[in-house]
Design a protein around this nucleic acid. Structure first.
Length: 560
RNA sequence: UGGGGAAUGGUGUAACGGCAGCACGAGUGGCUCUGGACCACUUAGUCUAGGUUCGAAUCCUAGUUCCCCAGCCA
């Protein structure tokens, strides 16, 4: 397998080398290890694609393992959402679903082994004292006064910790390494803390819980993980993981660190995302403005697009920030190929075709997807009174504008050429209606005399139109780096007040009334839209804008 | 300040001592019944200073800048 595909990043290079040297008996086994304390976001997608992708590419396996070592923060709600999101992304962990809590018993035995070997001790220092004793970045720490307890005393105390004899925070089990080590992680790190808390899986069985650092490496080892891939901040912890594995004398996986994903105009911090949800700055974890997997799903993103995105951004150790446009490019790419085209008018302007017979209707044939002939065609009703986009008419057109204007002829997509002959305004002077004429010989969109029009605009027949709510989403933050705030302010200061615009009464072509939740469309000339999975009712879909189409005209106009 | 990492066009990412390539963006033109898509072309880069070498993004030396670490979080 490795012979046909050239390594595309430094991790694949390592894997190929290990395969070549038969380092793990030619085996490759990865894992995705989320903590169930929040919903998965696009940054996790990068890790998921990496871990599962590696195994797929090199004929290995990937486990899903929940890192549930802190019962005060974890919940089954998150477990369920994480599994759903990984599956939705298109990955399968087979029967290899694990939890760190599956290994609590084994881990406890390992701890006893370290105590017996004189490599771990029970410490009575408080959290504050522990911090003081740890020293600083430049100054060595001091040994805990409890560091030299006998093995017997340590064993007794540790058993009693487990038995629930002590209050939270009164004692810890610590590894006995080196309080003067230049790497602070090696200064007698805490292995167990006392936490009388209910665990989502083990219930009230335990009142001591292992720290992540004491857990993770051993779990990887127990699962025979060959390549333990994690983010850069754990690079400092690797010596500690290696120390535990060595002292225990168990299978040694290889940890490889890569840079986590950063994206412009959004945040990836679970803590901040939770805050947005809790403070109701968004409607929930799956708000279509959220960078969560479920947010993107609801917004209309496809798993294929997210995978393509992860592919495009690469994997490296450099701390970079990807432009949101890369993600948008990926979804446009995918939806351009697969989404059916329809016509929808977001901000309707009434158009009356003066020379079209009263009461007459016609049905015109429209192509569903020019990128995919097999998608076929459909009929779109036409009549005397129509809606067009307000933005597709200018009373005094700027240079380069080639949509509708007084005296100007444009094409109604798949229908007729029309010419604007009069403009009706209200008392406030606003344009409320256009009077136009049509050329009956241009039915279908082409003139027999061969004359051309510059503009083609979309439209909906007024009497046939289906009204619907449409939600236009913009970036959640109005700064590329939302954490960039003035002194004393928080990231909330950069929240984009216009991240959601709701259009209560958009006019859609009638076929859209039958849209099912989750159906995706291209609204011609506007963007890609998805029928909302929560708020749509049968026969009454609500649409979310996934992403706009590229808009060359808007760009031109902005420049002038 | 101790330790651990990292620096390549605007943004990302390749190169494994031998022509600095690719993607996205940006720009120009073509095509078009979506100002979409598509096609073509253009733009623009090796952190700095020395050294080794016929030849350096790559090796060596010194520096600069950025990121991570002082939770009984993960």
């Amino acid at each position: 397998m490795s012979t046909e595909a050239r390594a595309s990043n430094f991790i694949e290079e390592i894997v190929e080398e290990d395969l070549r040297t038969n380092k793990y008996g030619g085996r490759i086994h990865t894992r995705f290890p989320p903590e169930p304390n929040g919903y998965l976001h696009i940054g996790h997608a990068k890790s998921i694609c990496l871990n599962f992708g590696l195994a797929q590419k090199y004929g290995g396996l990937t486990n899903l393992r929940f890192d549930d070592t802190n019962p005060t923060k974890e919940d089954t709600e998150y477990v369920d959402s994480i599994m759903a999101d990984v599956r939705w992304l298109g990955f399968d962990w087979g029967d290899r679903l694990f939890y760190a809590s599956d290994y609590f018993e084994q881990l406890f035995d390992y701890a006893v082994r370290l105590i017996e070997a004189g490599k771990a001790y029970v410490c009575d220092l408080s959290a504050d004292q522990t911090r003081e004793f740890r020293g600083t970045l430049t100054q060595p720490g001091k040994n805990s006064p409890y560091r030299d307890r006998s093995v017997g005393e340590n064993l007794d105390l540790f058993l009693r910790m487990k038995a629930g004899e002590f209050l939270d925070g009164t004692r810890t089990l610590r590894a006995k390494i080196d309080m003067a080590h230049p790497n602070l992680n090696m200064r007698d790190p805490v292995m167990y803390r006392i936490l009388h808390a209910h665990h989502h899986r083990t219930g009230d069985k335990w009142c001591i819980y292992p720290m992540y650092d004491w857990t993770h490496g051993q779990n990887d080892s127990q699962e025979r993980i060959t390549h333990s891939i994690c983010t850069l901040e754990f690079e400092n912890h690797r010596p500690l993981y290696d120390w535990f594995i060595k002292e225990l004398g168990i299978f040694a996986p290889q940890q490889i660190e890569f840079a986590r994903l950063n994206l412009t105009y959004t945040i990836m911090s679970k803590r901040w995302l939770l805050q947005l949800v809790k403070e109701k700055r968004v409607t929930g974890w799956d708000d279509p403005r959220m960078p969560t997997i479920c947010g993107f799903r609801r917004r209309g993103y496809t798993p294929e697009a997210i995978r393509a995105f992860c592919d495009r951004i690469g994997v490296a150790k450099f701390n970079s920030t990807i432009d949101m446009q890369v993600l948008e490019g990926a979804i446009r790419d995918d939806l351009n190929r697969r989404a059916n085209r329809v016509m929808a008018v977001l901000r309707p302007l009434k158009v009356v075709i003066e020379n079209y017979p009263d009461g007459q209707t016609d049905e015109l044939e429209a192509i569903n997807n020019p990128e995919d002939p097999s998608a076929g065609t459909r009929k779109v009703p036409f009549s005397k009174t129509l809606y067009i986009e307000q933005d597709d008419f200018r009373e005094t057109p700027p240079k380069g504008y080639y949509r509708l204007a007084p005296g100007v002829e444009v094409r109604l997509r798949y229908a007729y050429f029309i010419k604007c002959v009069d403009v009706v305004k209200n008392a406030a002077g606003e344009v409320v209606e256009l009077r136009c004429t049509y050329d009956p010989t241009t039915r279908g969109g082409n003139a027999p005399d061969g004359r051309k029009v510059k503009g083609t605009i979309h439209w909906v027949s007024a009497q046939h139109a289906h009204s619907a709510e449409v939600r236009l989403y913009d970036y959640l933050f109005n700064k590329p780096d939302p954490s960039d705030v003035p002194e004393g302010e928080t990231f909330l200061a950069n929240l984009n007040p216009n991240s959601l615009e709701t259009i209560a009464d958009a006019k859609l072509e009638p076929s859209l009334a039958a849209a099912k939740p989750g159906d995706r469309f291209q609204f011609e000339r506007l963007g890609y839209f998805c029928a909302d999975t929560k708020d749509s009712q049968p026969g009454k879909p609500v649409f979310n804008r996934t992403v706009t189409l590229k808009d060359t005209w808007a760009k031109l106009e902005r420049k002038s």
